[in-house]
């Protein structure tokens, strides 16, 4: 199925199309395609009768929506207060210096992408990261290095 068809299919699910269903539609599209893109915005705009600029503006406002495709390994790094106090900062520094990866970015080879989130609600086990929904607790740069190495070798 092409991307456009998938988007059409998602739009079919909504019986009533107006700006109130915009966020759920974008959420569905993102979970289907991994990220948003121009095509999606144009299609949704046509169907919802909304200017694309408004959809783009909305999508860039919220943390959830991404326009860059996710990497093969999507790293969510918790930077809540607790994880921060326990050293989440050094993990961020490590990723930035070694993978040249900053929040919201994807590495050039598409292997890794990073999303810094605030509080995963697992404060005792911090610093917490999750990679593709798999949780890692008490991560320090040393441990992160091994995790990344293992993933790269796979």
């Amino acid at each position: 199925m092409s991307k456009a068809e998938k988007i059409e299919e998602i739009l079919e699910r909504y019986s009533y199309l107006d700006s109130k269903s915009l966020i759920p539609i974008l959420q569905d599209i993102q979970s289907e395609l991994g990220s948003l893109n121009e095509e999606a915005i144009v299609l949704v705009g046509q169907r919802l009768n909304l200017p694309t600029s408004k959809i783009y503006g909305l999508a860039t406002f919220y943390n959830q929506f991404k326009f860059e495709p996710k990497g093969k390994n999507h790293i969510c790094l918790c930077n809540g207060t607790s994880c921060r106090l326990k050293g989440a900062k050094w993990n961020m520094v490590y990723l930035e210096e070694n993978l040249k990866l900053k929040n919201g970015q994807t590495t050039r080879n598409g292997q890794f992408s990073l999303e810094v989130v605030t509080c995963m609600g697992a404060c005792d086990h911090g610093p917490v990261i999750s990679i593709n929904e798999e949780y890692y607790r008490e991560v320090d740069p040393e441990k992160l290095k091994h995790i990344i190495n293992d993933l790269t070798q796979e």
Binding site: P51, K54, Y56, G57, T60
Partner: peptide
């Protein structure tokens, strides 16, 4: 429309 949020916000087009 405004694009992004907070200190990264700017006025932009689609």
């Amino acid at each position: 429309e405004f694009v992004n949020r907070g200190c990264n916000m700017y006025v932009g087009t689609t």
